[in-house]
Amino acid sequence: MSRLGIQAFVPQSTGSSAVLSRRDPRVRIVLLLLHAFAFAAVSQVALLPVLVLIAAGVYGLSGLAWGALLRRLRVAVLLIGLLVILLPFVSGSSVLMQVGPVALYREGVEAAALIGVRFLAIFTVANALLGCGALFDHLRALRALGVPVLMTDLAMLVVRYIEVAHHDLHQMHLAMQVRGGKGHRGGAVLSLLSRVREHAWLIAALLLRSHERSERVYSAMQARGYGARGLSVRMPPLNVADLVFLMSGGALAALVFILEWHTT
């Protein structure tokens, strides 16, 4: 059973007065997409220092602790780490160095550097821009940017009830243990099957409870006027500072595209 503190995983801003924290969430989302896709477009190793500089600069503007970024990185880095370690030894034809049967290839090193730095730059910018505000504000901003209401409402309700579902699961798991749910007899296969069945029951109980809760939640939402006309929340127009910030950030992302286009 996984131990999970959901709140610990939600990016949290520590510097409410930081430059990025004062920007409109719509601006942060647009800049995140622009920078993420600009970084993904880079295919030249020579441009990688530019990505590092931009990502470090954006993170600096967020006021978030660098330690927090490293902690989150530890969870996310598995597949990328594997590729970055393996590619230099299995991809390419120009040998840089050889020790016995193991050879280090130039093409592999370049591919690993591109994949690794692009990942780190996008991850850093995403953490900086999304860590500067509440998740609900960013979901509201997505709605204002044209994402369908059904999708954003679904996301908000999911965020709201993840913690509840986690609490339910924890309680049910405890109850199962108290009732002796950990006693597995028989051989390895029988023990495995009984564990699978036990986990399936746990998931079933969680889904049944969530299903029952949804009826009550819908009634409560209706009582609060959910879906009624005239109750939609509109976001105010962007102020001058937000527009200037958006244009500057957009220009930076455009610069990456132009440099990539020039060097290719």
């Binding site: 996984s2 309700l157 390895a188 969680l206 969530s210 949804s214 009826e215 939640v217 819908y218």
Partner: peptide, 27 residues
């Protein structure tokens, strides 16, 4: 009434989200 389905989908999505974090033994 498409909105009626929304809480059900959201509650179950949250439950699936949490359920997918459970690790099962597969020696």
């Amino acid at each position: 009434d498409p909105r009626r389905e929304l809480p059900r989908a959201a509650m179950l999505t949250a439950a699936f989200f949490i359920a997918s974090l459970i690790y099962l033994p597969l020696p």
